[in-house]
């Protein structure tokens, strides 16, 4: 696919240690195929993902940023991902206000047992970013 469009996106995925990272691990153990474009950054909680981290990922050349954590109610720290759930929609809007396509950032809940969902989410997001084209066009043009 990447050969066809000539664009292989870089996607930074922040994954929480307790759910999504374990889910990604399980997907690997089960030999499921997830996109190679995903650059995993393990964080202890999706609540740790500050807006600065997402902005810096875009600045450093990411074409898309995924923030993934436990489902609401499953957070290892009880309400860490509640903060993520509030913060990320604000950041998404803000990206749109300055003209960065908000579709380039996504928040997804993936639990440790949802290896197939991890594959599904990452594949769909990679496909979306591939269609959107490189961010560099938008940022440095």
């Amino acid at each position: 696919m990447s050969v066809e469009s000539g664009f292989d996106p870089k996607i930074v995925a922040f994954m929480c240690n307790w759910c999504t990272y374990a889910g990604a691990d399980n997907a690997g153990v089960a030999r499921m195929e997830s996109p190679h474009n995903i650059l995993a950054v393990r964080v202890m909680c999706s609540g740790r993902v500050s807006p600065e981290m997402v902005i810096r990922a875009f600045r450093s050349g990411a074409d898309g940023v995924l923030v993934m954590g436990c489902h609401i109610g499953d957070c290892h720290y009880a309400a860490g991902n509640h903060r993520t759930a509030k913060r990320m929609p604000l950041l998404r809007n803000l990206l749109g206000y300055v003209g960065i396509n908000p579709e380039r950032m996504e928040l997804a809940w993936v639990s440790a047992g949802e290896a197939p969902r991890f594959v599904e989410v990452t594949q769909a997001f990679t496909k979306k970013i591939r269609n959107l084209g490189p961010l560099a066009q938008e940022v440095t043009e």
Binding site: P51, E52, I55, R56, F58, R59, L90, L91, L94, L95, V98, I100, V139, T140
Partner: peptide
Amino acid sequence: WVEPGLLAPPFPTFHLIRAM
């Protein structure tokens, strides 16, 4: 988050951080 020594601060770091 904001690299030193660059003027203007590279889009979109500085101002988006403050806005957020």
